[in-house]
Amino acid sequence: MTLTEPWRVLAFLVGIIAFVALNAAYLVWLERKVAGHIQGRIGPKEVGPFGLLQPLADGIKLMSKQLLVPKGVDPLLFKVAPLLVLVPAVMSFVTIPFGENLVARNIDIGLLMIFAFASVNVMGLLLGGWGSNNKYAVISAARAVSQNVAYEIPMLITVVTMIMLTSTMNLNEMVIQQGGGILNWHFFANPLMPFAFLIFFVCALAETNRAPFDLGEAESELIAGFHTEYSGMGFGVFFMGEYANIIIGCSLAVILFLGGWQSPFEFLSDQGLWGVFWFLAKVYFLIFCVMWIRWTYPRTTLWGLLNLSWKILIPISLLILLLTGAMIKVWPLITGAS
């Protein structure tokens, strides 16, 4: 930790990109294993022990494939779109604290920055779908946008609640506030927080286009949605972007509610690499839940999705915001008065 600033940034950037790429590859492997076992199968097993080299084989296959640019597409949009999905996701990792001191840029508005980048993501889907010159892709792009717009609202309301609770937007600061064992996590800060967590988690699922909200790529309706026309690494980059977004979503949930890199019990260390271990353990648990959910539920429709957002998530998240605000402001008054 004695590197000078430019080297530090470079090290982090290389680290983050490696982390994203490796995770995207191995989360696919994990997903296939989870799906396999849920369905009474084994999943990948032929390439390497337990199929562990499968992502490598897949990667080589995707990279060696021709990048087809179909007739009639807008070449610029078509090529830029996958990057527009992946780059913001990678950028968001800049402010994520993996450990007490392990954060690329510990900036005060980290949370705001992540949401700013997250909203660029949907542009990638829109441009990819629009640029593909494919009716299925256009429908999918329209769906993805309306879905993202609908779900930013309850998600942001929940996040505002958390900001009120912690009075900071610095992610590391938030984690530090949750030190001292599992009961100090914001998940248990007040009786409303589990619901807030649930809302945040559902919104994260919807934001990242994961089942049961995978309307954008609904394979039984729209073939593959916005990436119908993509081949080779064009598809691969979309895929990496999707998994990077899942990691971001789960990381945020962990940081906001589940104590980030803090260990669950005080007698367990969270210094140095232990902090990274606790953080990743929680993140991977949530990612497992995301996969578990995907392989359990059928897909919703756009109507169902909007109904859920406007009729259930937004009113309840507003209620939580109000009640939390009241608790923060009114409770000290009462207790202070008595």
């Binding site: 009474g40 199968r41 084994i42 097993k45 578990w292 392989w295 359990t296 539920y297």
Partner: peptide, 18 residues
């Protein structure tokens, strides 16, 4: 409940023939 059922099947032995 649905999650519970898929979890139950996840820890059951696999049924496929390799």
């Amino acid at each position: 409940v649905g999650l519970g059922i898929t979890f139950k099947y996840m820890i059951k032995p696999v049924v496929t023939v390799q």
